[in-house]
Design a binder for these strands. Structure first.
Length: 582
RNA sequence: GUCCAAGUAGCUCAGCUGGAUAGAGCAAUGCCCUUCUAAGGCAUCGGUCAGGGGUUCGAAUCCCUUCUUGGACACCA
């Protein structure tokens, strides 16, 4: 258990000793540092519950606290705010408790098994800027939850079914009508795909354009889509080959972004559950035909607001995303039986997921009280406040976006330090870090403005600043090693700057919990910046390696190691890789 | 039209389960390099929290209302 948590528990016991019962008591970092390092605001809450004056309750608490050697400068201010500071002994014992393992500064949660669905890529379509946030946010939520003790399974849920399959296959037929899969006598045998990954960048757009321009072609595409969904062999084999080809490049880009999926499944994997899904819905009389389509009502009688029905089968017989999403839930419950399923997707999908969750519960595919959660995120916009575009107004590919940032980070490399052969790789790590950190810094739900030079700058709240500072810590520790300096004891504090670093470290568990609760990484991203900058201040004020007092030097090295290890742990949650030099 | 977000410093964003004097980064201005990566640090400047009303000891935060901006709303995913 973290130091802060056990202190809070002790405070809780102290309150019970006084006859007060409170679910939790919080030791918050003070917003009045002139009065104390931490504050306890619960006297006011208790005052309401027990109908007493906040001041008298605060006095009772303070009486007990003053005999505790961990606290000093205990005082009451304002309406009943209790201010406390921690003694040097308390801070030293805290650092000792985490110096060999910084994860001792984390409070684990009761374990749960969760499937998190956060890919969003569509087979045969290019990944573009709109696909950036899901892997960033989803992966980070996954890593955070897993650090806090959850068993997490990330599923890419590839968009490998639906209208684009018909368009792509039709386009292939037009370009390569000699392929065996288009022959009537085709029996499902293997054949070589005549295209490369790069060709996919062109095939879908041109197929989609043709379909939009001609109703007749659109109809052909619909029929092909229907046939793929119903197992027509030639089209299905071809489509699956294209899905595999496309998956290769999707995986490459996700790997660059540090998103790794435990489950690489797609909508097609849910097909086998569709008959069962439709059957169970029908048996419960939940579905009906409306305008030729099979639909299901998801509103409840006590709804104050309207919730439109969901469409399960189109009038041409093809399935829709609600169908595959429901079938996917059915499959996940059967195969993995998770406690919860989470979705990380664009805010615009909120209504869709609301309907799907309703449907799943109504049809008893999951329990009524099951936890299906949608965590929506905002859009990355250009300076004009509209989704980020290329200079000529086209859709910006994800690869293109990364290159754009990389050009900028390349300029910032210290060429005296980074060898020529490492520069390209390092610039790319910095670019990914810049992009990811900027993406995780705003609250999940907000739209934010993309600004290359701001994000890749070395000053301020940026990925490169964090990496630079972390590398500098590592470099310091390496120098100590080269000079054969032994350090293992932490028993001395000197000034406000080392104290400030420790106080910041103390707050880590609160930050992790808040980020987890909100399923947003903004607070954690902000915290790494805070920890890094208080450390930099400390680093700037104290010359560690040349410090004459050995006890102090040793303590400072221990502290540096703790901050370095904490930074590495947190950078890893955000999915930022740290180079050795930059 | 119905519903959902959002409006906080010049810019980009935090803060919203009600708490003390509303924060950070950038930009601007001024300092600190014989020193572990100065790619750093310190300081100053900057606010009618969109407008109006309400709830209470206390409101950026909760409620009502007006305005503004995004977005979703049946055969795309």
């Amino acid at each position: 258990m973290s130091y802060i948590k056990s202190t809070e528990n002790a405070l809780k016991d102290l309150l019970s000793g006084l006859g007060y019962d409170l679910e939790k008591i919080e030791l918050c970092v003070s917003n009045r540092p002139d009065l104390g390092e931490f504050q306890i605001n619960d006297a006011m809450k208790l005052a309401k519950i027990y109908h007493k004056s906040p001041i008298s309750i605060a006095n009772e608490i303070v009486d007990r606290l003053s005999s505790n050697s961990s606290f000093m400068n205990v005082n009451i201010a304002g309406a009943g705010f209790i201010n406390v500071s921690l003694s040097d002994e308390a801070l030293i014992s805290f650092v000792k408790s985490i110096q060999n393992d910084v994860t001792a500064n984390i409070d684990k949660l009761p374990p749960k098994k969760v499937i998190i669905d956060y890919g969003g890529a569509n087979a045969a379509k290019m990944l573009h800027v709109g696909h950036l946030r899901s892997p960033n946010i989803g992966e980070a939520i996954k890593r955070l939850s897993s650090l806090l003790g959850y068993e997490m399974l990330g599923d890419v849920h590839l968009g490998d079914s639906g209208a684009q399959s018909g368009m792509v296959v039709r386009e292939m037929r037009e370009r390569y009508k000699e392929l065996p899969c288009f022959k009537e006598e085709y029996d499902g045998g293997d054949f070589e795909l005549p295209i490369k990954k790069e060709d996919l960048n062109d095939i879908y757009p041109s197929g989609s354009k043709k379909a939009k321009e001609s109703e007749q072609i659109m109809e052909e595409c619909r029929q092909i889509t229907f046939q793929i969904q119903n197992g027509s062999i030639g089209y299905t084999v071809l489509w699956n080959k294209i899905v595999n080809l496309s998956s290769e490049s999707i995986k490459e880009i996700y790997a660059k972004l540090n998103a790794n999926f435990e489950l690489w499944e797609g909508e097609q994997d849910a097909y086998k559950y569709i008959p069962e899904l439709l059957k169970t819905l029908e048996e419960q009389n939940l579905t009906y035909i409306s305008e030729g389509a099979l639909v299901m009502d998801v509103k409840e009688t006590d709804d104050e607001k309207e919730l439109p029905p969901i469409l399960l089968v189109k009038n041409d017989g093809a399935y829709l995303y609600a169908t595959t999403d429901l079938a996917t839930i059915l499959g996940r419950i059967k195969r993995f039986n998770p406690d919860e399923i989470w979705y990380t997707a664009d805010n615009r999908q909120e209504l869709h997921f609301k309907q799907v969750f309703r449907a799943a519960k109504k049809a008893n595919i999951v329990n009524r009280n099951a936890t299906l959660e949608f965590f929506g995120f905002g859009t990355m916009n250009g300076p004009d406040g509209k989704p980020f575009k290329t200079r000529d107004g086209g859709v910006m590919g994800l690869t293109e976006l990364i290159s754009l940032v990389k050009e900028e980070t390349f300029k910032n490399l210290n060429t005296d330090i980074v060898k020529e052969e490492d520069r390209d790789k390092t610039a790319e790590m910095l670019a990914i870090a810049a992009l990811k950190y900027a993406d995780l810094l705003p609250y999940r739900n907000t739209d934010y403005v993309f600004d290359v030079s701001k994000f890749s700058d070395l000053d301020g709240k940026t990925g490169p600043y964090l990496l630079y500072s972390t590398i500098r810590m590592k470099s310091l520790l390496n120098k100590a090693k080269e000079q054969c300096i032994e350090y293992g004891n932490f028993n001395k504090l000197k000034n406000n700057s080392d104290r400030e670093v420790i106080l910041t470290l103390l707050n880590l568990p609160n930050v992790l919990n808040k980020s987890f609760e909100a399923k947003s990484l903004n607070e954690l991203a902000e915290y790494i910046y805070k920890l890094t900058s208080v450390y930099n201040k400390f680093y700037n004020e104290n010359k560690i390696l040349t410090e004459k007092n050995n006890e102090l030097k040793e303590s400072w090295l221990v502290l540096s190691k703790v901050v370095y290890n904490t930074n590495m742990l947190l950078l890893n949650i955000l999915g930022l890789n740290c180079p050795d030099k930059m």
